[in-house]
Design a protein around this nucleic acid. Structure first.
Length: 464
RNA sequence: UCCCCGAUAGCUCAAUUGGUAGAGCGAGCGGCUGUUAACCGCUAGGUUGUAGGUUCGAGUCCUACUCGGGGAGCCA
């Protein structure tokens, strides 16, 4: 018999004789002499109901002993269901138990409600739950949609390095990569770690961003992007931060900040559209059980343009706000979480693009505006999670870049190859970074970022 | 890293002013039923996060630590 994944079995015509394989969600016995088994194989949100008649040779010895989590194979015929809740079901002619559950009493994913906090402690089994199965499928759908979007729009995927020795990013605390003996550490005469003896002959770290590297390919292939893991050794303990997370960073040449904002908006909307088209089942679940109205919110995002305001306008809005903030607003400060939340959740109620921030709170590579006070930076703020995108037009003028490097007391020599881009055919270009997990949080309504990545890495936590 | 809260059965939570630790869900067994968050009955299940301290007596009070949650900072 043909083995069908459950998503295909559910769409197949009644009468088909097929095999399905998966894990038991529930078993309900009927003294009419049959049992109902809800089976999932993760191919879609729904389970397939197996009707196991009492005539099966192993009915009493095995079928009636099945518990949540058991792995089975079932042969049978797809028939129209006599009961409510499903259109088709499998009338089994043979059920084979592939793997039993040792002790149903202590099986961590018992058929009952569990908290997300608890499920994090059993991260190896939580993908068997409705919530984590749905997150995994949505995550895949978005990852595929990201590559498809860029491919169809003429972008090339650039594999920027995971290990970097260039020490240029300055985007946060970094994890060291080293092969030095941790017990008998080689020391310099001054007593410092002797990185000349290390694998790369210099200090190396896990990347905090592929941006500087991808800019080099942007200044050759015009439209490029990175999509890969990034690492921050910040001691951040929040529902929006991970030590290891995935980031999407497009970079476009012959482009300014406005082009950048256009790309960000079109990109996000395209992903949402694909998600709503392809994962209707999982999104219906998030809408029902995780965040009421999340699907309508996403449709609303599709229908309306992102609000675009400058930092200065944002500050004015906040100063006029009929609301007391813990941190008072003043031109020059970075926007606090409460400010971002007010703008995107209360005032404007959809994603907001804030542009042209004071130079003092932004990175050296962002392009200086004509006012000499602000830089061509942009943040996209999303309701519920705050900053989802950070980006900028890059400073393409060598003299301005150099003065910014000097102003911020950065080691100019480390940036030699980055500066070369400005010496040889420099061109206006721009890009942004989108946190993949924050995107998933936004579209699913999942409250904690630890629950939208299979194995979250956070301070003092890397069990799995 | 800072502020606040928490840790008791497999899970979610109760336990009066300090006085022998309870329920729901889950699980096992039985009943009932083309069932589907099923329902009804019975049963099992706990050195109360760790280490100290106060007390005749600590789940309860005190100290430290560990882990978890909410908020803040850093950011994506």
């Amino acid at each position: 018999m043909q083995w069908l994944a459950i998503n295909h079995a559910l769409a197949a015509d009644p009468g088909a004789k097929i095999t399905i394989k998966g894990w038991v969600r529930t078993r309900r016995d009927s003294k009419a002499g049959l049992s109902f088994i809800a089976l999932t194989d993760g191919s879609c949100f729904d389970t397939l109901q197996i009707v196991a008649p009492g005539e099966l040779s192993n009915y009493e010895s095995e079928v009636q002993k099945l518990t949540a989590g058991c792995a089975i194979e079932a042969d049978g015929e797809l028939v129209e269901s006599q009961g409510k809740g499903q259109t088709v079901e499998l009338r089994a002619t043979d059920i084979r138990v592939v793997g039993w559950v040792d002790n149903p009493d202590t099986y961590p994913i018992a058929q009952k409600r569990h908290t997300f906090e608890y499920l994090r402690e059993v991260a190896h089994l939580r993908p068997r739950t409705n919530s984590f199965g749905a997150v995994a499928r949505v995550r895949h759908c978005l990852a595929a949609a990201i590559h498809r979007y860029f491919h169809e729009n003429g972008f090339y995927w650039i594999h920027t390095p995971i290990i970097t020795a260039s020490d240029c990013e300055g985007a946060g605390e970094m994890f060291r990569v080293s092969t030095l003996d941790t017990v008998n550490t080689q020391r310099t005469p001054e007593g410092a770690m002797d990185f000349e003896q290390d694998f790369f002959g210099r200090e190396a770290h896990l990347t905090v961003s592929g941006q500087l590297n991808v800019e080099t390919y942007c200044c050759a292939l015009s439209k490029v992007y990175t999509f890969g893991p990034t690492f921050r050794a910040e001691n951040s303990n929040t529902s929006r931060h991970l030590a290891e997370f995935w980031m999407i960073e497009p970079e476009i040449a012959f482009a300014n900040l406005s082009d950048n904002a256009d790309l960000a908006e079109d990109f996000i909307k395209s992903l949402i559209k694909t998600l709503l088209d392809e994962r209707e089942d999982d999104m219906a679940f998030f809408d029902l059980r995780i965040q009421k109205g999340v699907v309508d919110n996403l449709k609303h995002v599709l229908e309306s343009p992102f609000e675009r305001i400058t930092y200065t306008e944002a500050v004015e809005l906040l100063e006029k706000a009929d609301k007391k903030f813990e941190y008072p607003v003043k031109w020059g400060i970075d926007l606090q979480s409460e400010h971002e939340r007010y703008l995107t959740e209360e005032k404007i109620k959809r994603p907001v693009v804030v542009t042209d921030y004071p130079k003092g709170i932004k990175a050296f590579y962002m392009r200086m505006n004509d006012d000499g006070e602000t830089v061509a930076a942009l943040d996209v703020l999303a309701p519920g999670i705050g900053e989802i995108i950070g980006g900028s037009q890059r400073e393409e003028r060598l003299d301005v870049l150099d003065s910014r490097i000097a102003e911020m007391k950065l080691p100019k020599e480390n940036y030699w190859w980055y500066r070369d881009l400005r010496r040889y055919g420099t061109v206006p270009h721009a890009g942004f970074g989108l946190g993949f997990e924050r995107l998933i949080q936004f579209v699913t309504g999942m409250a904690n970022i630890r629950d939208v990545i299979p194995f979250p890495r956070t301070p003092r936590s890397a069990e799995f």
